[in-house]
Design a protein around this nucleic acid. Structure first.
Lengths: 213, 213
DNA sequence: TAGATTGTTAATCGATTAACAATC
DNA sequence: TAGATTGTTAATCGATTAACAATC
């Protein structure tokens, strides 16, 4: 079951999308689905769906299709939804607070266990069951608690030093909201949310399709 | 100069990254750079850089490389940084407020011109020069002002109807923060920021690399 | 059983990388 | 001029799509 060959990142990036569609199907009471029907809903080919799923196992049945609930559970397991990743948020500005309040993450296996800042105006503030702590409490907190992922929402110029510190503390996953590529020495996985990059791609597409204004 | 052949989305998605690296080079006073040196900084091949840039024009010079400032300006133009896209934010919760306060967008050609919500607690609130308006003022506002992009940060269940309304109002670019794929009838470009998808990919990678906990 | 649909192999397509002639 | 480096063509690699035998 473990990787015969490494699953390509293109496939991995589609998994959350399968997860969403299967969840929705489950919610509306559909119990079985063929790759063909799912392909029509998702706007990708049935072939791709079958190829993608078969990276992880043979979840379907010839002549029948896929059982929605069991396929949903398989995808959930592959994505680690049942693993319970503990997360901390670094930076309690609007973005940090938005993440703290975002209820979706909990459902998907991520639990916020701490939020940190240096601004005295927010330290001590209660946000969705968490109390904002000062950054100088970070070391001790990470040593006492299991922390899998740190979400970085600090200002641009503080990002590199904060990221480096998180790696030193042994945190293995960084979710980076700063518009920069982190160059880190240690053993860590970084996933970026480059908002302005995404917005610029939208701008480009608008310009291409609708021309210069 | 206009598209001989359509530029692939893979290339377009790299443009903002070139933009960032060139900006940084400019800032530290580097005036020329070869594809080889840039490739080392960015962690991609020199070949890819040259291929990418040549989708848009021959910006370099044999034996010399690329002039950083002029290449930066070319990329900026390609991305439409000088176009001034007007944006509105739908939803003035934490995420909407975070976007309203995010100074990066302005530098890259995007200007917030309005922010809307239905919650009486935030209507009238001043956020970074903008005053939160009620959603029932949206129609009139869009008719009176040029709006290129709407950023959707409303709760999950309100997203489809809000998105549909924005398309009806003739807005051509949607930046969607809801974890759903918008299925819209009209003529519109949608760019998604699926935060929980991104986080789940991080979770998957952690699980793969560091195993089940 | 017959029909449907998977799992999987083979074909195609597109993107990345390599190579090198052109030229500054 | 000689050296460097582009622009561009060709080769490779990987991802997507098509096809179909296996089988429920």
């Amino acid at each position: 079951m473990e990787d015969k060959r490494k699953v390509s990142i293109a496939v991995v990036k589609r998994l959350p999308r399968y997860y969403r569609y299967l969840y929705d199907l489950l919610k509306i009471g559909i119990t079985r689905i063929s790759s063909k029907e799912l392909s029509e809903r998702m706007g990708i080919t049935a072939s791709q769906i079958r190829q993608d799923l078969n990276c992880f196992g043979g979840f379907g049945q010839q002549g029948y299709g896929y059982n929605v609930e069991s396929l949903f559970n398989e995808i959930a397991n592959i994505l680690g939804v049942n693993e319970k990743f503990n997360t901390i948020i670094i930076g309690a500005g609007n973005m940090g607070q938005a993440l703290a309040n975002y209820s979706n993450f909990e459902k998907r296996g991520f639990r916020h266990v701490g939020i940190f800042d240096v601004n005295p105006n927010v330290i001590g503030k209660k946000i969705n069951n968490l109390t904002v702590m000062h950054m100088n409490e970070l070391d001790e907190f990470v040593k006492k608690n299991k922390v899998d992922i740190a979400m970085i929402t600090v200002p641009y110029d503080q990002t590199p030093v904060v990221a480096e510190k998180l790696v030193e503390l042994g945190i293995k996953g960084l979710w980076n909201f700063s518009p920069m590529d982190l160059k880190l020495s240690g053993d860590v996985i970084v996933e970026n949310v480059h908002l302005s990059d995404s917005l610029m791609v939208l701008g480009y597409k608008l310009k291409e399709k609708y021309g210069r204004k």
